[in-house]
Amino acid sequence: MATRHSVRRLPRFSRTERALHWVHASAFLVLFVSGLCLYLPSLSELIGRRPLLKDIHVYTALIWLAALALILLAGDRRRLLATAREIDNFDDDDVAWLRRRRVPQGRFNAGQKINAIVTAALAVLFSITGFFLWYGERDHAFRLQNALLVHDWLMYVSFFLLLGHLYLALVNPSTRHSLNGMTRGWVREDWALRHHRKWAEQLREGRDA
């Protein structure tokens, strides 16, 4: 198969999956920055426009949730469900990976699965505590003790999770090709064979079959 591309491209993330990822990522950045301005005394004085920032923060959160719902409605749900099942199931090779043994991995290694699971849980917890913060300030009946503290702690967890994610996706030379999967949807087969051999081979069998 000597084409312009000497290496094969393997489709890694569908359009639906990429849309989900980038909606989530861009909303997170807006929420993170506007949230910090609400949160850090030094920034709050600098900007001093709390109601505006609060509106940005709250409405970004609403748009984020609406966009996620829209993608679930309009997107390739079967494919998403299959991906969710993959992430849910930890096979022997995932367990081996967690024990730091280098064995061929499927489409996601155990670390990527954990990242996805933690991110989903953070999204749920952020939404719940955020709702009570938003409504609690308007009406005392919705004030939930410690919602603010928990929202803050979630921010710290998600910030460090994001730092690790960015390191692997943008900096670390051996893993950063994976970004291509999330931007253009495909990865090079040689890269896939190195990092996700089981998946790459399954694709190859599927193609040959």
Binding site: L10, P11, R12, S14, R79, A82, T83, A84, R85, E86, I87, D88, N89, F90, D91, D92, D93, D94, V95, G106, R107, K113, I114, A116, I117, V118, A120, A121, K198, W199, A200, Q202, L203, E205, G206
Partner: peptide
Amino acid sequence: TGTGTVKRDSPHGTDLPEALQRHYGRRGF
């Protein structure tokens, strides 16, 4: 498919018998 996990004879994918699957994902979540 792109996932490579829907093959019926896959030894590792999600099509293991239910008893052999580890639903760590949903449990963790």
